[in-house]
């Protein structure tokens, strides 16, 4: 993964007036994460204010992941996956769209600005696009300022996810009667 510091970010770090957002990026293993890798290998410069979480498929990114990030003080959340038709699991990104729509509905109700949450498709070859999306989204979140839920100790919480909040359950696999669930 690439986290090279761009000149503008270096300035930002030394100047106390510029707000550096904390962004959580969810990336699928097959396209977006590899896209980030491509950006790194190609030495494409981009802003470094994000933490990346790799999942096997963007369809796995259920609302809970995003809410948890916001609850723990993330200023922005980027969900990324393969382009339509490119999904390693055929239709995982279609599930991602459904989950994302649901997530966005609740995010709006909570009063979190829509600009803090974004869905993007980035393929493994699109290193340049990855950098572009990251730069654009970082600037967008920076303009919005700190999240209303950002706590003082948010960084610590994001980096050491212990205590507070629920463990993830796999109630589905437990349930013989099926039902909506996740």
């Amino acid at each position: 993964m690439t986290q090279q510091v761009s000149p503008s970010a270096k300035n930002a770090a030394t100047s106390p007036t510029v707000f550096d957002p904390r962004i959580v990026v969810f990336a699928c293993n097959w396209c977006s994460y590899a896209g980030a890798d491509t950006a790194g290998v190609s030495r494409i410069q981009h802003q470094p204010h994000f933490r990346m979480i790799r999942v096997m498929c963007s369809g796995r990114i259920q609302p809970a992941f995003v809410f948890r990030a916001f609850e723990k003080g993330a200023d922005g959340v980027l969900v990324s996956g393969c382009h339509f038709g490119d999904c390693h699991y055929i239709f995982g990104n279609e599930r991602a769209v459904e989950q994302f729509a649901k997530t966005m509905n609740v995010v709006k109700l909570l009063g979190i600005e829509e600009g803090r949450l974004r869905l993007e498709w980035i393929s493994a070859a699109e290193g340049g696009r990855f950098a572009e999306v990251i730069n654009e989204f970082t600037d967008q979140v920076r303009a919005l300022g700190p999240s209303p839920f950002a706590a003082e100790d948010a960084i610590a919480e994001i980096e050491a996810p212990e205590g507070g909040g629920c463990q993830h359950s796999d109630a589905d696999s437990d349930s013989d009667a099926g039902g909506g669930g996740h």
């Binding site: 809970a64 809410f67 609740v106 909570l110 909040g165 629920c166 993830h168 359950s169 669930g181 996740h182």
Partner: peptide
């Protein structure tokens, strides 16, 4: 902690 269904999404919403 409880094993919250939906990955604890609703609990996160309530905590926010």
């Amino acid at each position: 902690q409880p094993e919250c269904p939906h990955g604890g999404a609703l609990q996160s919403v309530m905590r926010m």
